Computed example of a mutant assay.
Amino acid sequence: MSLVQSVDNVALLPAYLAAGTAVLVLLADLLVSRAAGTVAVAAAGSVATVAGAAVVGAGGERRTFCVGADCSWVFGGRAALVAAVFGLLTLGVLALSGPLLRAGRTPVGEYCFLLACAMTGGVVLGGAGDLITLIVALETLTLPLYVLVGLRRGSLASAEAAVTFFVVSVVATTLTLLGAALLYAVTGGLHLGRLGATFEERPELLDLPLTTVAVALVVLGLAFKVAAVPFHAWAPATYDGAPLPVAAYLSTASKLGGVVALLAVVQRALPPTVTGPVLALLAVLTMTVGNLVALRQRRTVRLLA
Rank of each mutant, 00 (worst) to 15 (best):
D207G: 12
V213R: 01
R202D: 10
E200P: 00
V186D: 08
T198K: 07
T198P: 02
G188K: 07
G189R: 15
L190A: 13
F199K: 04
G189V: 09
G193C: 00
L195E: 05
Y184G: 08
F199M: 03
L182G: 02
H191G: 08
L192Y: 09
L206A: 10
L206H: 05
P209Q: 15
V213C: 08
R194T: 14
F199P: 02
L178F: 06
G179L: 04
A197C: 04
A181S: 15
P203E: 11
G189H: 15
D207S: 13
L208P: 02
L206K: 13
V213W: 05
L195M: 11
E201V: 03
G196K: 09
E200T: 14
A180M: 06
L192H: 02
G193L: 09
G196A: 10
G196H: 08
P203A: 12
L190I: 15
A185R: 10
A180I: 04
P209T: 06
H191T: 06
H191P: 00
G188M: 13
T187Q: 07
E204I: 11
P203G: 10
L210C: 02
T211S: 01
A197E: 15
T187C: 15
G179F: 03
A180G: 12
R202Y: 09
G196S: 12
L206P: 05
E201L: 15
T187W: 06
R202S: 14
G189I: 02
T211M: 02
Y184S: 07
D207N: 03
E204A: 14
L195F: 03
L178H: 02
G193P: 03
R202T: 10
L183M: 14
E201K: 14
L210R: 11
P209E: 11
P209K: 08
E204V: 13
G179E: 11
H191E: 14
G196Q: 06
A185I: 01
A180W: 00
T198L: 15
G188T: 11
L177M: 14
P203T: 12
R194F: 00
R202V: 11
G188A: 12
R202L: 09
L208F: 01
R202I: 08
E204Q: 13
T198S: 12
A180V: 10
L208G: 05
G188V: 12
V213D: 02
P209S: 11
L183T: 10
T187G: 07
T211N: 01
L205Q: 10
E200C: 00
E204F: 10
V186H: 09
L208V: 01
E201H: 09
D207T: 00
H191D: 12
L205C: 07
L177K: 05
E204W: 12
L182M: 15
T198R: 14
L192A: 08
R194K: 03
A181R: 05
G193Y: 00
T187I: 05
L192D: 07
D207C: 00
H191S: 14
G193H: 12
G189E: 15
G193S: 10
V186L: 04
E200N: 05
G179T: 06
L178T: 14
L206I: 13
L182R: 03
L190P: 02
A185Q: 14
L177F: 06
L192C: 01
L183D: 04
T198E: 13
L183V: 13
T212Q: 07
L177H: 07
F199W: 07
